[in-house]
Design a protein around this nucleic acid. Sequence first.
RNA 1: GCCCCCAUCGUCUAGUGGCCUAGGACACCACCCUUUCAAGGUGGCGGCACGGGUUCGAAUCCCGUUGGGGGUGCCA
Length: 469
Amino acid sequence: MAQTPRYRFAPSPTGYFHVGGARTALYNWILALQNNGVFVLRIEDTDDSRNNPQWTKGILEALAWLGIDSSDSHFEGPLFQSANAALHVAAAEKLFEQGKAYYCDLSTEDIQKRAKESGKQGYDGYSRDRGLGPGEGRVLRFRVPQSLTIVQDEVRGSVEFDNSTIEDFVLLRGNGSPVFLLANVVDDITQGITHVVRAEEHLPNAPKQQMIWQALGVTPPSWAHVPVLVNEQRKKLSKRRDKVAVEQYREEGVIAAAMKNYLMTLGWAPTGDTEIVPFEKITADFKLGSVNHSPAFFDIVKLQSFNADYIRAMTVDEFIRACEPWLVGAKAPWQASDYDAKVFAEVAPLVQTRVQLLQDVPSMVDFLFCDLPTIDDAAFTKAFAPEWASSTLIEIREGFTTCEFTPDALKAVVEAVGEKHSLKLGKLQAPLRVAVTGRSVGPPLFEPIALLGRDATLKRIDVAIAKKV
RNA sequence: GCCCCCAUCGUCUAGUGGCCUAGGACACCACCCUUUCAAGGUGGCGGCACGGGUUCGAAUCCCGUUGGGGGUGCCA
């Protein structure tokens, strides 16, 4: 009778939510889904001064954004580590009573001094047999048994650690509070965790924690240590120097589905030749055993490419809805009163294939929602450099005053002028584009011009010609 | 220093002894299409770190070298 597998994700609320954390969460989430198990979210908010409730909120929101929240029955939590402090201490005391841990009154300086004198690194087990009891300033250390600890890891196989290389590590600080190594294990035990899937940086902790599980008389969980995400220098992604905040990518207009899909291609790949696949396929395909063993570079360029792909795959309506935060409200670069949702809906299909990030959208359409566009000087200078630029623009203006104001008719006017002067449409439209949009690149020109209307268009052309002269 | 992990195109990966003349994706380049820019299409560039084994046969197994990474806290 197999028990329900229980996975967990245990972040500490010390900053923005890290993309590496997001990937670990996704792994655990997928495993819980595919094995009909439980995903326990545990916030490890033990007395670290870096903790802040605001970060907890951020973690919850970011996970929810990725589709990991209590609306799904596989989700359990959030649980807070700080609430279990008494349990952690009780477990430590039990270990002390059983002689599996002992108190030590050496300060960090004392330990360093002894290490220096003996020439051996780390704590030397000085207080092992001194029979010290608890007391202010005394730390409780785990009595590491003399043996070999073998960690069975689902991605790495069996990893052996000679216990003689593991010092008697601290369980309880001098002030009596539990350290991560202990609190983490006690919580896992009390929460019935059966599978620990986490980043490789924790691999050195695994033998220590496995010993604690055993010392507490509980069968250790199944371990899996997945490779870390690295930056261009192949160093572990860090909050300090790398762009790792999930929140930030979201702000820029990365789609959650794209982020999930991309993250899952780091260290693993869905079956088949396509890597952009529905989350359902990932959930069905994923196997811990086929996760890569080496670190993966978090490539923002590729993430954006995935994102652009996801944007293009949307229906126009979905796209319009997804753009909303960037079009109305605080993020919009224009006055709310100047924005016209109907106009945007018309050009939406034109911009959909041209953006990688949703935040790129406003700058593609802003010229439609202002009186006069902001002219990019470099673009203007270049577009109006040819001697024919102004004169042909005047001719085009001429045509625009009388023609039907539809994309086709407008295009015909410009083409006619082009034919007269043997200029290709691509070249000829440059000054027009800058005059109307302020930029040298953008969505196809004639649809927006038709939307803009005759008066506004002629006005912009006049302004541009005046500027030239 | 010590412990542990890792090693396929620039990057992410497929590959589990013959299907490999190593496949796909991102990036890059070229061409086509084209209303600028994209998108799309076609093609191109580019890799099994090195050295030894094992085997009829090795990207795949073993050993070593080199190179990278993680850890080494009274952080998590």
